[in-house]
């Protein structure tokens, strides 16, 4: 086993992540403005910006889904109970005692089990909830006439959309906070900027990368 600096976030994934950051921030700000939580924007322009950002995010997600499945990266997001307890205990207790994070990043699992479970929930439930309700909200006039209580149906759609938005807001808070835990904020953000992170490699993995994907290995300082 050797700790090597490996490119774990390829260029597309980083672009995806940071575009998503910008779009989600725009969506949150405009969306909560539309909802009436704050009054820093006019309703009309807020709706336009929200719609455009939402459509851009959907396009990005279509590309990302395509990328996840063609590259096999989707496997990174399969949840697993293995090690979940240790990670949870670390955040609840160990972290206060200065203990080490129990999860060691390996090549095929760049997320710890808690992270993977969270992303699984986000990707399979919360994000689909927000984009499906968002599309229904946007296209209300195409289906409104074919349901019996259109105003009530729209009310349900709108409230599910809003609830999903609040859940995502909570995720963002915890997500950003957890960057400060462990290696520290800068160390945690850096891989998403440069693409490289320290990963425990088996001898086979190291040999494979050296032979077949040499660009993913940062030359060791010796």
């Amino acid at each position: 086993m050797a700790k090597r600096c490996v490119k774990v976030y390829p260029r597309f994934e980083r672009l995806w992540h940071w575009s998503q950051v910008v779009l989600i921030v725009v969506l949150m700000f405009t969306g909560f403005g539309i909802n009436g939580l704050h009054h820093t924007l006019h309703f009309g322009p807020a709706v336009m910006l929200h719609t455009i950002a939402a459509l851009a995010l959907l396009v990005l997600w279509i590309f990302a889904t395509f990328w996840l499945f063609t590259t096999g990266t989707w496997r990174q997001f399969i949840p697993s109970m293995e090690g979940m307890m240790q990670v949870a205990l670390f955040y609840a207790w160990g972290v206060f005692q200065g203990k080490k994070h129990p999860y060691k990043k390996v090549l095929l699992r760049k997320h710890n089990p808690l992270q993977a479970a969270t992303y699984f929930g986000l990707k399979w439930f919360v994000f689909p909830a927000i984009w499906s309700t968002g599309l229904l909200y946007l296209t209300y006039n195409w289906w409104g006439a074919s349901v019996s209580e259109p105003s009530f149906a729209l009310w349900v759609v709108a409230n599910l959309h809003l609830l999903s938005a609040y859940v995502i807001a909570a995720f963002v808070i915890v997500h950003v906070y957890l960057l400060t835990v462990g290696h520290g904020f800068r160390a945690h953000v850096r891989p998403m900027v440069t693409g490289y992170d320290e990963v425990e490699l088996t001898a086979e993995e190291e040999a494979y990368l050296a032979a077949d994907e040499p660009w993913r290995l940062k030359p060791q300082k010796s």
């Binding site: 160990g94 972290v95 206060f96 005692q97 200065g98 203990k99 080490k100 994070h101 400060t180 835990v181 462990g182 290696h183 520290g184 160390a187």
Partner: peptide
Amino acid sequence: AGKKGDDTHG
């Protein structure tokens, strides 16, 4: 607790 958590890596 005076710990940043996992500060062995800085």
